[in-house]
Amino acid sequence: MTRILKTVADTRQALEPIRKGTKVLGRIVGGRIPVSAKHRLALVPTMGALHDGHRELIRLAREHADNVIVSLYVNPLQFAPDEDFEKYPRPVEQDLAMLEEEGVEFCFMPADEEMYPEHEEVTIVSAGEAGRILEGEFRPTHFDGVLTVVAKLFNIIDPDVACFGEKDAQQLALVRRMVDDLDFPLEILAAPVVREADGLARSSRNTYLQGEDRAAALSLSKALSAVEAKAGEGVTVALAAGKEIYEHEALASMDYLELVDAASFAPISEGFQGEALALTAARIGTTRLIDNRRVQLGA
């Protein structure tokens, strides 16, 4: 049975026997932990509304640790005042049932006041300039909120590994950079994008999509496919092909469609050859979705 933990103190106490079993074995140069080490702990941070993409994260965590803890917490710091914090889906019973099905040992499910005790100002982890581009241009405070809550989870839980999805590619890159910059002694693992049968990337926000909006949401994956199909012809041609998909979908409003270096997220120019990351975000009615795909540019 999944043990539900609601306070920082209870969580640390519950995990102490596991931590005692790994402190000696699990801390080596660079934060890399031997796969053979016993009593390892893996964290899967989520905002709940779990779907098959989260199942893959949990199963990835299970491959690398003897104990798995999933956090269910809708983090207010990563939502702007005009975003969907209040209506974000919170099907707690359904989420806990999935954790039981997957054999998850622990669930950290704190209240806001537990995560952010009342102060005049909350200390924030800054994502820097890398958090102001792409997704950050449209959600300027988003990644500061993400990194702040992730850093708190790392400090509270002290996992050996933490698992994130590649669908949130920019978030994943920023978390990895934070782990390196702030010397968190853990390893970040990533699971591939999980898609519906028709290509739509799995997302908790997909529950907002109804009727024509659901069909229109396919414009994101179709735009990425178009970029991939034309990638051999260069950056300009590839992006134009993707943007044409959006132009023909009246219910989709594109925020961005960009090609960046897959390792550094730096912008790439015409003539670039090698692996790149195509990233896109669009609004389908009142629902904002993101997606990405790795593509090979050049010959």
Rank of each mutant, 00 (worst) to 15 (best):
P117F: 07
G274L: 08
D112A: 06
E101M: 04
H64A: 13
T46V: 02
L172P: 07
A37L: 12
P192Q: 07
M254Y: 09
M115L: 01
E120C: 06
E93K: 06
I157H: 00
E100F: 04
E137D: 13
H51V: 00
L189C: 02
E86W: 04
E100H: 12
I133V: 15
Q78G: 01
P45D: 03
E101V: 04
E270M: 06
E118V: 13
G211T: 10
V161W: 03
D213H: 14
L259I: 03
L96C: 04
A49M: 10
F154L: 11
V237A: 15
S264R: 14
D168Q: 12
I69F: 00
D160R: 10
P140Q: 08
D168E: 07
K6S: 10
E196T: 04
D66F: 06
F164I: 01
E187W: 09
F265D: 09
I58V: 10
D160I: 07
E244Y: 09
F184Q: 03
T22V: 13
E101T: 09
V227C: 05
S269R: 11
F164A: 06
A216I: 03
A281R: 12
A173M: 11
R177I: 10
A281F: 09
A229Y: 08
V149Q: 00
E86C: 03
A97T: 12
A252V: 07
G31A: 12
R12V: 00
K87D: 15
L147Q: 00
H142R: 04
P45W: 05
F108D: 00
E120Y: 10
A14V: 01
V295Q: 10
E118A: 15
V104Q: 03
E275C: 12
R12I: 00
L259F: 05
A238R: 11
N67S: 15
G242D: 05
H64T: 11
A197W: 10
A263Y: 14
V146Q: 05
L189F: 11
L189D: 08
R205Y: 07
M98S: 13
A240I: 05
E275H: 14
A252R: 05
E121R: 15
V44W: 01
S253E: 15
Y246F: 15
V150Y: 11
D10V: 01
G232C: 08
T7S: 07
V193L: 10
R214C: 06
A37R: 14
T287P: 11
L277N: 09
A49S: 11
A197S: 13
A241N: 05
D183G: 10
K167D: 08
E233D: 13
I18Q: 11
L77Y: 03
V146S: 02
D198F: 09
L50R: 02
S204T: 03
M47Q: 03
L99Q: 02
L200T: 11
H54M: 04
L60W: 08
F272Y: 15
